[in-house]
Design a protein around this nucleic acid. Structure first.
Lengths: 114, 114
DNA sequence: CCATCATATTCCGATATGGGAATGTGTCAA
DNA sequence: TTGACACATTCCCATATCGGAATATGATGG
């Protein structure tokens, strides 16, 4: 078996930095293939191919307008990543967690006193 | 050029589902290579190699204990992913955002009445 | 010291990659 | 209709991959 194809899921599609940059660029709104190629300083075929991958996992949507193609971000497709990473969020928020614990404890003490 | 190596960064390391499962398994605490292999139903060399990748990007830490190796999650290493995805969070939270706005508005009205 | 256990590493093969270069496809404007 | 334009697709190749099988490494117990 080889490496999981890039079009397998959002995780694989987003692994490539160039594709993340494409999504970042689309964060500010619709854009054309040519615009993206120029902004990111890469060739047009390269952009087209990356967009193809992003399209395959539904991370971008296209609107055809004459000989132009307006690509736009489909943010919700990123939710699976967000949800997965979120389950580990506490591991770097330990201080806040402890603060939560502290507050809970204080609250308990208050309730016991009343 | 070929595909970005899996050890390039956390995004690439986490693209493989098996490695995500390893991290999930380590979410409940330290574990041995053998334990992980049994839990996930994969061979020992496979686990070792995946852990090698995760180690390379600092997603797991090891504690040597005799002939055992206790691996544990290093959650904060996931923060780059969290931060990146978070910049797109509003794109799927529009409804909740509106709810927030609504609540804020209600709160304002209450304050104006008092 | 030796056999065994727990991991790591190496070798293998089938498969996919990303980028460059070239080419295909479809649309517009004159 | 034709040429130019905007994209998509194909072909190419150097490079990694994952998993299985085999093997190396290293610690432990007797």
């Amino acid at each position: 078996m080889a490496r999981t194809p890039t079009t397998t899921d959002v995780f694989n599609a987003v692994a490539e930095a160039s594709r993340r940059e494409l999504l970042d660029a689309l964060g500010s709104g619709e854009a054309t293939v040519g615009e993206l190629a120029e902004r990111l300083g890469v060739s047009q075929p390269t952009v087209s191919k990356h967009l193809g991958v992003l399209r395959a996992v539904d991370l971008v949507l296209v609107r055809v307008d004459g000989r132009h193609r307006w690509y736009r971000l489909n943010g919700p497709a990123l939710k699976p990543i967000h949800d997965w990473v979120r389950t580990f969020e506490r591991t770097w928020n330990t201080r806040l967690d402890r603060l939560d614990d502290l507050l809970a404890e204080l609250k308990n003490q208050e309730e016991e006193q009343s």
